[in-house]
Amino acid sequence: MFQPEAGKTHLLNRMSIKIITYLSQAPASTDEICHTLAVKFQLTSDAAFLRNIDNTLHHFDALGLIKKVK
């Protein structure tokens, strides 16, 4: 995925693409994102899964791909 503002290209896995696609439709909470991904990829939305998604969201935030809604 190309990020014109930063002039960077990011290589994303399927789950990351799903997160970006989901957030491009509407803002969402971490819980909502986790639930959607768990259903989509048929995974259990346990604490470890939530932590992984949270880490991914932090990375996206640091890269300037997403931001927190105030």
């Binding site: 190309f2 491009s24 803002p27 971490t30 935030d61 997403i66 927190k68």
Partner: peptide, 19 residues
């Protein structure tokens, strides 16, 4: 408080990767 995330800039990301 739930943290709501959104895309940083929808227009900037609404592009294909064939750049």
């Amino acid at each position: 408080l739930p943290v709501i995330m959104t895309l940083h800039s929808g227009a900037a990301l609404a592009r294909t990767s064939n750049m």
